[in-house]
Design a protein around this nucleic acid. Sequence first.
DNA 1: GACGGAGTGGACAACGTTGTCAGAAATAGG
DNA 2: CCTATTTCTGACAACGTTGTCCACTCCGTC
Lengths: 352, 352
Amino acid sequence: MADTARPARDPRRRYGLRPTMKDVAARAGVGLKTVSRVVNGEPGVTPDTERRVREAITALGFRRNDSARILRKGRTASVGLILEDLADPFYAPLSRAVEEVARAHGALLINGSSAEDGERERELALALCARRVDGLVVVPAGDDHRYLEPEISAGIATVFVDRPAARIEADAVLSDSFTGAREGVAHLIAHGHRRIGFIGDLPRIHTAAERLRGYRAAMAQAGLAVDDSWVALGPTDPGRVRADAERMLAGRGSAAGPVTALLTGNNRVTVTVVRVLAGLERRVALVGFDDFELADLLTPPVTVIAQEPALLGRRAGELLFRRLEGSGGEPRRVVLPTRLIPRGSGEVPPHS
Amino acid sequence: MADTARPARDPRRRYGLRPTMKDVAARAGVGLKTVSRVVNGEPGVTPDTERRVREAITALGFRRNDSARILRKGRTASVGLILEDLADPFYAPLSRAVEEVARAHGALLINGSSAEDGERERELALALCARRVDGLVVVPAGDDHRYLEPEISAGIATVFVDRPAARIEADAVLSDSFTGAREGVAHLIAHGHRRIGFIGDLPRIHTAAERLRGYRAAMAQAGLAVDDSWVALGPTDPGRVRADAERMLAGRGSAAGPVTALLTGNNRVTVTVVRVLAGLERRVALVGFDDFELADLLTPPVTVIAQEPALLGRRAGELLFRRLEGSGGEPRRVVLPTRLIPRGSGEVPPHS
DNA sequence: GACGGAGTGGACAACGTTGTCAGAAATAGG
DNA sequence: CCTATTTCTGACAACGTTGTCCACTCCGTC
């Protein structure tokens, strides 16, 4: 008799047909709150009662519904991460690092790829805000983040990483793209190059603009003029990059002649350019932004300006949780240094 | 007067201090349900009322609290993905593919790395179940997934990918590791090799065991005996792999002599072995499981048995959502073929 | 044997949303 | 101008949990 206690319920909703604390309480013959106490390890339950409750929990296969818990407690113990592409070898370690920090704080990570599309970034970010993630780590794709202002002031901690926020003040963790690019170009100049090309990302992307600025600064410092045809910014798809590289290397459309060295603006671009150079007779010097796996085993090994994506992610995560723990104050901007790793491709002398 | 409507609330909880539908309703001078209707685009609201509600929404910066919505509706529109390491170049595209499928179905993706630790996998999976994710995609690390049985029968759709579930029946999307490895070894044998080593992952990992089985099958088929010292399974850390590779190449501890060719069991192992071989005088043939970026630009280019991680992820995601849409029936097992890509390193002739 | 005081246990409201249902307003028809 | 119908609106309960608070039991004491 008493065992048929669990009544038929409205079958339309209810998570599957999962038992609730109420069901457990009925089965164990205790009150609802006592079950809650056992589940949450709160004191004030006799060993005997606890045992009965635990038995009922196992028998019914009960698992606490965190949706309800979240609603009640007001904290979701989850953070969102929005980046360009989860599969990009630069962002994957960044993502993993954020995950580790979240894990250390008992939070889960909800991940989304913006595909470098500002509108998609916005949709994702707002969906995450609607879920009331505690915090948000964003690699921005869009050029206006004012849409996040109400969310941030409503208490969703937000940290931008790799690129700063546009049109709002917010925490950011960045690499020093300007200095990195400048040092990379200086390295090429030091090895005798005068005609140096730069193939970068879309100009609206902050890092691309900064790296271009670094390139120009290094050229200017060495008293070298920059021919318009030596600079190509655009999407990172291999077709575009290949075309630009081949054009520069042939000196087409250039009054100043073909380049003898290239600075590439990110790991995607570098990989494509390495392919182009591999098909060439003559040797062309190359410095790539971002380190990448096996760069040291190519012929010649590729000189790079290395960032630490995992460190970017870790710092961003740490900053986020510091904010969540109540650290106030002005938006902070953390800038991490880059590191030039000479491996050979940057030391190739000018061809002609 | 009427404008001071929003009363002081208990400041201890409440998500930040966000307005709720109640606040919006009060401000717009309508009922709670009318706000809900507007927010959800339900019919039956006059344009004028809708305008007043929308104004109130913007004025207060209201955003629907999906936690409450989820609790009410019983669907979270989110799926969980558990894999070994988000940053691994094999899993990153898989993850991205699952994300794309989820996105197409209006769901968010919650990501977790198990770090190849069964206990951590379990914790993560159960945490996701407590959140009532609609479905779960799992690259299993543990060797017993019976802990998921109550969850699955409670309605959480679950698809295993890359490796099958252990000790339970469940959907799985796999690559044909056995055939792949067998073909890889056959390729080496066809190029004259007789002493072939296999360096793989931990033996408890299904793919590692299958690839070993494929290796042995190919050797047996060619009538070749396998010396114990030619097989090394273990963790993928570079130190272990390097030591095993060097031992096999030197023929230490082997009655049958040093190997002249190697089959590597996954992309991590391959990369380390490529490094070892690069430091060697003599040429050693190599076939690696998993394709990897720039494999074609190494010297010699690396012959691989390619899987399609993105396809694995996509198929798993599709199967998951088909289950969520009510497709019943027996657990399905999808096996995707691998593809041998000869690039040169597998065609190196035996040294001595 | 009544009287505090721990120590337990449970009733109840609240979190913010959506589904149900019934009432009010507006329109059409006689 | 009144009724029948449609359209619009809002009160209320429910989702499953946790926090508050009060009631009860069981001791040892006086």
